[in-house]
Write a protein that binds this DNA or RNA. Structure first.
Lengths: 145, 145
DNA sequence: ATGAACGTTGACGTTAATGTTATATTAGTG
DNA sequence: CACTAATATAACATTAACGTCAACGTTCAT
């Protein structure tokens, strides 16, 4: 029936209950339905979103505030999926989508840059390794003498 | 003469004076020489290290504590560069270097994983973009009708 | 030798992102 | 229905990584 209580959600998303409520509080997780008594009931989408939040945050090292932007985009697109009949609305909708794409492009660029940075760090470490190996070589040569 | 005061170092490294002292305090920046009166005098290496710290931290999104490991390695290697004459010491040194290389390998693996994660996020965004474009297509088709 | 500019320590402040604890309700089971 | 386990809210605590400010000492160019 797609009704998960917070403990289940915590288990499946890998976040703590505190964190899940906090994410709702700061507005990055949409408030789930509540029972009569106030117990939160989540659905699959909540869980998926939480996983994505965690994953993206971890991968990019973003603050939750920065994450908002990332997360908001997919919702925006979903909300634009409904089709309208009137020409004016179609224009407006297309404009909106184009600006979403612009934003996406900017974020893709940011990600590219991040990858480049990481690869540079990787190179640094690789060089360190080479240096260490060189020193070992030197030691081995001395050994033979 | 290679003697930089903290203001210079801040300028060149892009960190604040507070941050530089803080890094010394928590042990990720080696204490520089001091003047009679207590003023810190840094050298090129300090500056290079600070730049690396900043860069690596930014690229990998590590906490300063996690960074310690990363940063410590290059110093370790430098300190092993001196060559010793005695066989026993050579063995010991080689062991140390080999273990350093092991650590480096582990960190390289971590970096690889990080890159993979980021690429997955990138894919997600790319898919979002495709979806947005698909919606636009649909709108355009309706237009023609 | 002096004053402006810079440096030092120390302490308290701040912000994000939770952890923890207490107290009160609620949900589900025998 | 009674009980136990889970949930809710609220409030205070914590940690990292600095920022800021005060009070005081140091440098150095004039």
């Amino acid at each position: 029936m797609d009704n998960y209580k917070i403990d289940q959600v915590a288990l499946q998303s890998g976040l703590t209950k505190r964190t899940i409520r906090y994410y709702e509080e700061i507005g990055i997780l949409p408030p789930p339905k509540r029972s009569e008594g106030g117990t939160r009931y989540y659905n699959e989408e909540h869980i998926e979103l939480l996983k994505r939040i965690k994953y993206t945050k971890d991968a990019l090292g973003l603050s939750l505030e920065e994450l908002q932007h990332f997360i908001a985009l997919s919702n925006l697109i979903e909300s634009q999926k409904v089709s309208f009949k009137q020409t004016a609305e179609r224009r407006e909708q297309r404009e909106k989508l184009l600006s979403i794409i612009d934003t996406l492009d900017e974020e893709l660029i940011l990600i590219e840059q991040k990858i480049l940075k990481i690869e540079r760090v990787k190179e640094d470490l690789t060089n360190l390794k080479k240096r260490a190996q060189a020193v070992i070589e030197k030691i081995n040569l001395e050994e033979v003498k």
